[in-house]
Amino acid sequence: MIDLKDIRREFVVGDETVIALRDVDLQIGSGEYLSIMGPSGSGKSTLLNVIGLLDRPDSGEYLLEGESVTTLSDKRQAALRRHKIGFVFQFFHLIPRLSAAENIELPMILAGMDGARRKTRVTEALSAFGLSDRARHRPDQLSGGQRQRVAIARATIMEPHILLADEPTGNLDRHSGQDVVDILEDLNHHGITLIVVTHDPDLGLRAGRRITMVDGAVATDTGTAQSPPAGP
């Protein structure tokens, strides 16, 4: 499903070139639960951004569901992000002036879906994530756990195949963090490919397949063999 070949990404910081990804080769199958761990600056977030089409590699090839996406135009990449990829961030990134329901609705608005369909889907999502009584609340009136649930609802409302989570529990207390992990794993059980970048070993060790990165390269990979069977 995700096939990275010799992906290289360099940044110029001052007059020094930092290699964030050093010719990374990685295959991720559909429905996998993958965690990426490693120290700061090891390139794990860059890898996630390349997979999520937010960042372009300097060299190498990226096949998404068999299609080469490395050289696609901004517009085509945006369309792929819209329909195939969902993002969950450490800082939630909810739009402060919009209510919980409006934040969840946003991807469908951007995709040009008609109003009636949006309303039913938002209502379904709100109840699925236990947010029905919080629909009209703005982000600053929600707890951290509720905000991240709104963010996950927004990331999955377009029914993407891949869910990318960058430190999803990094800003949450233990209890709401556990809550969020349960939701993400539940989505994975229902078939979504889940990729989690984290510092937290407790979270990282839960994944079926675990990758550690050091200095822009994959250091260890437990391999797909240990991944739990996809789907229920």
Binding site: G52, L80, R81, F91, H93, L106, A111
Partner: peptide, 16 residues
């Protein structure tokens, strides 16, 4: 800034 980043992550092209 972060809102613009989010809109891009949600699949909004630069033109939009």
């Amino acid at each position: 800034t972060s809102e613009v980043g989010l809109l891009k992550a949600l699949g909004t092209p630069g033109r939009r």
